[in-house]
Amino acid sequence: MLQFLVRRFVGLLFVVLGVTFITFILGYLAPSDPIKEMMGAHFDSQTWLQLRHFYGFDLPWYEQYLHFLARLARFDLGTSFNPQQRAVWDILKDGVPISVELALWGTVVTLLLGIPIGIWSALKANTWVDTLLMSSALGLYALPAFVLIVFVQLLVLWLNYAGISWPVTGWGTAWQYSWSDIQYKLAPVLTYAAAGYGYYARLTRTTLLEVMRQDYIRTARAKGLQEWVVVSRHALRNAVIPLITVLGLVVGLLVTGSFFIETVFGIPGVARITVNSVFLRNYPVIQATTMLIAIGVVLGNLLADVLYCLVDPRIRVE
């Protein structure tokens, strides 16, 4: 196992290097000039030249990239253009915990809703319960997040009209759970969950139905085991492997996966900063968040591999 982990972490280094290089080259070749963007209409050539020098844009591409790597080795991710002159590291320190909090709670609620509903639907396959549950799951899954958010916000607005004071936007304090904080967080978390639960419900149902047709399930039933034991101990454990695969990918996108929700609800997480940075050609932030996604995806897959072993002892990481 240790050898496996070491191998994966070494691989992670190469993935990060590759991602940073591709992001750097794309940014370098892009026609836009971030300094001109930052200066806006206050353009004057002397200031432009000085700012280009300050941010290292007057160097050849390979020197720029080597400087980036040298800074990276010192855990310095550079300086943002907008917000101006702010260390990228500081921006991530502020934004990542909030994005992780949103995505984590959203994923927990997604799983708490999606898996039981998927199981129930599988157990009631081809009945009206199944049809009802899967139709609603499909409906929510098909609904784009930005449409769902509008519905949720209108609902909150109606609550206010009905005399129940409830915030429409904002996030409260990260990782704090006073009543006020919960009020802020509930709508975004439920929106996140509603958008994703349909996928997990349908995936759980499909895989569980597949497993329930296997001989060993028939054998378990023939042995006279209770149905919930058959499902929880024999069926679900095998059905959960595809879910782990998907979860591994989701973990990788925990930080930047909720752009719409962060933007519309006014949540100061890193997903919104990332997309805004693309518009503003804020390359230091784009580099950092791309790297973050790459690390997340690799670690998420690593986590999935480890979980496979725990769930199914037949799988060996070696």
Binding site: V150, Q153, V168, T169, G170, T263, V264, F265, G266, P268
Partner: peptide, 8 residues
């Protein structure tokens, strides 16, 4: 710090 224009 708030949301987009519609949300606000």
């Amino acid at each position: 710090i708030a949301g987009d224009r519609d949300s606000n």
